[in-house]
Amino acid sequence: MTLPEQKGTVLLIVEDDRDMRSLLCDEFWGTGYQLREARDGDEAFLSVLQSVPDLILTDLRMPAGGDDYVSRLRTVAPHCPIVVITGFGDAALKARVLRAGANAYFDKPVRIADLKACVQQLLGLSTRTKES
């Protein structure tokens, strides 16, 4: 599965759970994205401040995470697509997260295939936006 046009595309994976982070990395490793990892909200912030990735894949319930985490993140990366994956959120949480600036929301457990499709779509969209 090679996507040459995506070379150099940076994904920031923010996840406090090692296994989950590892799973996501494994899944997206072979897809040609450049992966960066962060173990909590603060690391994610530092990473984004260093260099804004092309897409942020993040958990919500983690140290320095929470409801307002997305809006804080949005202040430093106003245009970067943000995909939120969190455990059994309810409709209200989903609405809040999307309002705060997230581009997609997934309840855990998420099917990796769905996630990949969404990521691809978002990157394609942002790439097209960039191109245009």
Binding site: D17, M20, R61, G87, F88, P109, I112
Partner: peptide, 12 residues
């Protein structure tokens, strides 16, 4: 909230 992540790991 607690089981969401482990389940996701298993599934993934």
């Amino acid at each position: 909230h607690e089981i969401g992540t482990p389940m996701n790991v298993i599934l993934g």
